[in-house]
């Protein structure tokens, strides 16, 4: 059974896609297979990895019976990381796509068909707390909430928590909150500093790892890469994502899951 982690937040631009992509990469560095699912109807992961609209078939083609699930699982150069892109969805059909994803347990069906191949499945969701986010939460074992270190995000955080609580209570009792990941933190800036102080002093479940605001994300985005893949010195941000992956694995472990032990671990040679 895979650990299925939905990255959710009501606010747009909180860093969901950035976190989903870089976290999936970092989780995979431990040689455990991971799948990154682009559930945002606008195809955010695809756009993050390619410089224009991608031709990758994905969920849209699967939903329309134009492709089998195995045909839309896309291997990456990272070997252990597989992508499930959104597909070539016509933007005019976004509404219909949302209904499909939400309806008939389709997501559970997809996850059920592939989850025994992966240790971690990371799901990037759209902002807002609409049907896709609800469907993702209903099908996940865990959720992670990126919080942009800015006033509006802090004031609206209850909305996201409320939806997580509702889905856990009504639809998916197994859903566990991994925690809040502070993102775009600038401790040298007054507002950001105050926010982080408030967050650390009043909220539980704030992860130890946080992401500073850094230009490197824009550089990575420009090149269509995860931060760990940029050339040159391995960046501090890539290391932070490794720490995040480690922290998440240990939370999953403490919550009762057996993180880090894939059931079919092959024997390996040391020397």
């Amino acid at each position: 059974m895979a650990h299925i982690i939905s990255i959710v937040s009501s606010n747009g631009g909180a860093g969901k896609t950035t976190v989903a992509l870089n976290l999936a990469v970092a989780l995979t560095e431990g040689q455990e297979p991971a799948l990154l699912i682009d559930l945002d109807p606008l195809g955010a992961i695809g756009f993050s990895l390619a410089r224009g609209a991608t031709k990758w078939p994905g969920l849209a083609e699967y939903l329309m019976d134009l492709a089998a699930i195995d045909d839309v699982l896309m291997p990456t150069k990272l070997g252990h990381l597989t992508l499930l892109p959104r597909g070539r969805l016509d933007p005019l059909d976004v509404g219909l796509y949302e209904q499909f994803i939400h309806g008939d347990g389709i997501l559970q069906q997809i996850l059920g068909a592939v989850e025994d191949r992966y240790r971690y499945i990371v799901i990037d969701t759209p902002s807002g707390l609409g049907q896709i986010t609800r469907a993702a939460l209903a099908a996940s074992t865990h959720t992670l909430l990126p919080l942009q270190a800015e006033p509006l995000a802090l004031r609206t955080i209850s909305q996201t928590l409320r939806v997580i609580q509702h889905v856990r209570d009504q639809e998916n009792p197994g859903l566990q909150l991994l925690g809040i990941l502070a993102n775009m933190v600038q401790l040298k800036q007054d507002v950001s500093f105050t926010i982080m102080n408030t967050v650390w002093s009043t909220l539980s479940g704030v992860l130890e790892t946080y992401m500073p605001r850094s230009d490197i994300f824009a550089q990575a985005s420009e090149k269509g890469l995860p931060v760990a893949f940029l050339s040159g010195k391995y960046s501090a941000e890539a290391i932070r994502f490794e720490s995040l992956a480690t922290e998440i694995k240990s939370i999953i472990h403490n919550l009762g899951g057996v993180a880090g032990e894939f059931n079919d671990r092959p024997q390996r040679a040391l020397v």
């Binding site: 802090l154 209850s158 609580q165 856990r168």
Partner: peptide
């Protein structure tokens, strides 16, 4: 925070929700 103009955030609701979510029970 000594600044009387420091913004305040009402996070009671968020904290209560978090408590129920994190404790699990």
């Amino acid at each position: 925070m000594t600044d009387p103009n420091a913004p305040s955030y009402d996070l009671d609701q968020a904290q209560l929700l978090l408590h129920s979510l994190i404790s699990g029970i």
